[in-house]
């Protein structure tokens, strides 16, 4: 797969500001994030901190009031919808099945960013569809219909579709919502692998502890601004997280890999007695 990828560019949000119409405060106020190739970059932060607005801005569903988004050397604004989708594969946060499709055909839609309106799928495309299904662990469900999938299967099918786009940048907005531990870990390990292949991975997530384990670079958003950024040890600091999440917590060590791990405090007295 790697031989068809262009010169692995990376994704840069440069001083990006967004204010929604009729909103008094900006959703993003000068946010800079550089997702570099060959590593997982994670954006974390409480609800309403601007994480999803980043993705919407990338998809041009909201316009920037300042700053720019660059994909490699190219400004986002200079790319057509199609050129963008060839370079960046996005798995949006929410997607509801209204018009069900068989899983394989759903994943095949990811290939269309490379095909003309009349070009049929070639052997090369079919091979990529199969390997994408396989990587996302969905090969055994390829003939199922998308409206019969569990929440976790649905997420993985959407990841498979993004993989089929063969973009050098992959952006995922909370991809492990609804996933149980095994499937969530499988997604994180998959992202780790994809990064090792040289892709740029930008991950929006609520899963601070897993992010601390897998992401090389973490950006913590708070009220539309970067509250902290850097390695897990730079960002996962008790005082910073307590202030941003407005909840008492302690930061300890992840016993598996020694990365920082967060434990919320207060409540849950029943567990203590057991």
């Amino acid at each position: 797969m790697s031989e068809v990828m262009p010169s692995v560019p990376g994704l840069l949000f440069d001083q990006v500001a967004v204010t929604y119409p009729r909103a008094e405060v900006p959703a993003l106020a000068g946010v800079t994030i550089h997702a570099q190739p060959a590593r997982v970059t994670a954006v974390v932060g409480p609800n309403g901190s601007g994480k999803s607005t980043l993705v919407r801005a990338l998809l041009q569903r909201v316009s920037l009031s300042a700053g720019a988004i660059r994909i490699g050397d190219t400004p986002r604004a200079a790319l057509s919808a199609r050129e963008f989708a060839q370079r960046v594969a996005v798995v949006p946060q929410r997607e509801e099945v209204q018009m069900p499709l068989p899983v394989r055909e759903f994943v095949a839609l990811g290939r269309h960013v490379h095909l003309g309106a009349f070009t049929p799928l070639r052997a090369h495309d079919l091979a990529i569809i199969e390997s994408s299904l396989d990587k996302a662990g969905m090969a055994h469900l390829a003939t199922r219909r998308t409206d019969t999938l569990s929440g976790g299967e649905w997420q993985r099918v959407r990841i498979a579709r993004a993989l089929a786009q063969e973009a050098s940048v992959l952006v995922l907005d909370e991809p492990t919502t609804f996933l149980d531990i095994a499937h969530e870990m499988a997604v994180f390990e998959l992202l780790d692998e994809l990064a090792a292949e040289g892709r740029t991975i930008l991950l929006v997530s609520h899963q601070l502890n897993l992010v601390a384990r897998f992401a090389a670079h973490i950006v913590l958003l708070h009220a539309g601004q970067v509250a902290a950024s850097g390695s897990a040890t730079d960002v996962m600091r008790g005082d910073v997280l307590e202030r941003v999440y407005e909840w008492p917590l302690v930061v300890t060590r992840d016993p598996a890999v020694g990365a920082p791990a967060l434990l919320p405090l207060r409540g849950g007295s029943r567990g203590r007695r057991a």
């Binding site: 998809l59 569903r61 057509s80 839609l109 269309h112 960013v113």
Partner: peptide, 24 residues
């Protein structure tokens, strides 16, 4: 019929369609 693929992509919804390169 000729542009049926466009319909496939549009029917996924706004954001997924943009993510798949549609000028929604």
């Amino acid at each position: 019929v000729v542009r049926a693929r466009e319909l496939d992509v549009l029917s996924l919804g706004e954001e997924p369609a943009v993510a798949l390169g549609a000028d929604v």
